[in-house]
């Protein structure tokens, strides 16, 4: 689920937590789209620190959001993936389009 959003000047951070699989994907996708629609921003960070599990269904969700944001000219970053999710993000090439950041 998307349990927190933080806005700063021109930017938005969305925290995703729990498990992101095919079952939870529609709910998380809707929550992300809702949060994205409510804010004005030029850069967005998906903070995955609270995410305990993700498989390729999650890649589909992130990629779908990225395509929407790219069309709006928004820069997107990924943050806080645990080692297993980090491996999946690296393997799928996600970091080449949504770079990894450490900043809060």
């Amino acid at each position: 689920m998307v349990n927190k959003q933080r806005a700063y000047d021109g930017g938005l951070i969305l925290e995703v937590s729990g498990e992101l699989d095919h079952h939870s994907a529609p709910k998380i996708r809707d929550e992300l789209d809702g949060a994205m629609a409510q804010n004005n921003f030029k850069e967005l960070t998906f903070d995955l620190t609270g995410l305990t599990f993700m498989d390729s269904s999650g890649i589909g969700v992130l990629l779908g959001r990225y395509k929407k944001l790219q069309a709006l000219g928004v820069r997107v970053w990924l943050k806080g993936a645990n080692p297993s999710i980090d491996k999946l993000l690296r393997m799928s090439g996600m970091y080449s389009i949504m770079p990894k950041v450490d900043r809060g």
């Binding site: 390729s56 589909g60 969700v61 990629l63």
Partner: peptide, 14 residues
């Protein structure tokens, strides 16, 4: 159209 990444088998292999 359903935001499937098409990476399932690739993940299993890796």
């Amino acid at each position: 159209d359903e935001e499937r990444s098409g990476m399932g088998f690739m993940v299993m292999e890796s």
